[in-house]
């Protein structure tokens, strides 16, 4: 028997509970239940809801925000946050509109949108990881900074006249009712799900969020991982900027106003701990579906926007408070 190179044995079990038992207690199953309830409620509330084209339209309520939410989920799990994502959209969209005046084609516009997103992510990441500043303060600052630049460039003007091939990125359909944005959403859900749950990088993200000191003592390059996460969030904001600009067909400095809060809401509703250390991509996907369906269903019922935000707020607090209340009652 050797300690450094021990033989293999099999007495300590891998897991105490089976996959079914783990699943039944998971947040995702609770969210799935809520999603089904809202789906059924919507079908009862409006006869138009089940129409395939209506359902397809409903997806635009969440696809762009959800793309950012995937990257944001990783960032929040790692114990950081980026509140400048909507500011990045504004700046990236403005840059694309400005480039349009020089006759750039669709590939060039997309490249600019993504590059601005990456650059903004790099600014946030450098301020947080190089200077050690708290990300919530840094990104509240860059939130105003990025959008401020957009206001200076545009004033009360707007950039219009994006080419048709560009517009397809926001309005186009791949097959039947499946939009290009929906395909992107599904693709990114898959990629981020694999990255978070099936790669060493994802494990490092979770470890850093649970205990950054122990992560460093285990040889994880904490600052490098965080830098990558800020870059990813910037890049996803750039991609969302391309889609949103293409869909709206114009750029105004007020574009994507207050999206950062909706993105964070989606992440937290998806079961990601706001304190970092835990969360899942399937949860965020379900949260995106729930939020999208609520918004669309209330829209079909002609409920005013302010009531929708009240409903989303109540849903968020309710979904977070109920498990804790249940645990407290059980603990007695």
């Amino acid at each position: 028997m050797s300690l450094l190179d021990p033989p293999r044995s099999r007495s300590l079990p891998d897991r105490l509970t089976g996959p079914a038992a783990r699943l039944s207690r998971s947040w995702e199953v609770l969210l799935l239940g809520i999603a089904v309830l809202i789906f059924v409620a919507n079908t009862q509330a409006s006869p138009y809801f089940l129409d395939p084209w209506n359902l397809s339209d409903a997806t635009f309520n969440f696809t762009e925000k959800a793309m950012i939410a995937f990257a944001m989920a990783l960032l929040i799990i790692a114990g950081e946050i980026d509140l400048s994502v909507a500011g990045i959209i504004a700046l990236a969209s403005t840059a694309m509109g400005w480039a349009l005046q020089f006759g750039l084609g669709t590939p060039g516009l997309v490249m600019i949108g993504l590059a601005v997103g990456l650059a903004c992510g790099a600014v946030n990441g450098a301020l947080v990881t190089r200077l050690g500043l708290p990300s919530i303060v840094v990104t509240i600052g860059t939130m105003s900074l990025f959008r401020g630049i957009s206001y200076i460039v545009l004033g009360d003007q707007a950039f219009n006249g994006y080419p048709d091939s560009f517009a397809w990125l926001g309005r186009g359909y791949v097959v039947w009712v499946i939009s290009f944005e929906l395909v992107l959403f599904a693709l990114f859900a898959l990629i981020y799900g694999i990255v978070l749950h099936r790669t060493n990088f994802g494990r490092h993200v979770v470890t850093i969020g649970n205990n950054p000191t122990a992560a460093r003592f285990a040889g994880i390059r904490v600052e490098r991982v965080k830098m990558v996460l800020f870059l990813l969030t910037g890049l996803m904001s750039g991609i969302a900027a391309v889609c949103l600009t293409a869909r709206l067909g114009s750029t105004r400095p007020s574009i994507a106003s207050a999206w950062e809060l909706e993105v964070v809401t989606m992440v937290v509703l998806g079961g990601v701990s706001i304190l970092g250390g835990s969360g899942s991509i399937p949860g965020v996907v379900l949260a995106a579906l729930v939020m999208g369906m609520v918004t669309f269903g209330l829209g079909l019922l002609n409920v005013p926007g302010i009531v929708m935000s009240i409903f989303i707020g109540a849903l968020l607090i309710g979904v977070i408070a109920i498990p804790r209340l249940v645990a407290r009652i059980r603990g007695r």
Partner: peptide, 20 residues
């Protein structure tokens, strides 16, 4: 604080520096 990530499972703590 420095040694173990207490919220994470045993096996993930053990394999952390050996993930490669």
């Amino acid at each position: 604080r420095q040694g173990a990530v207490t919220a994470m499972p045993i096996f993930q703590n053990v394999t952390l520096p050996s993930l490669p």
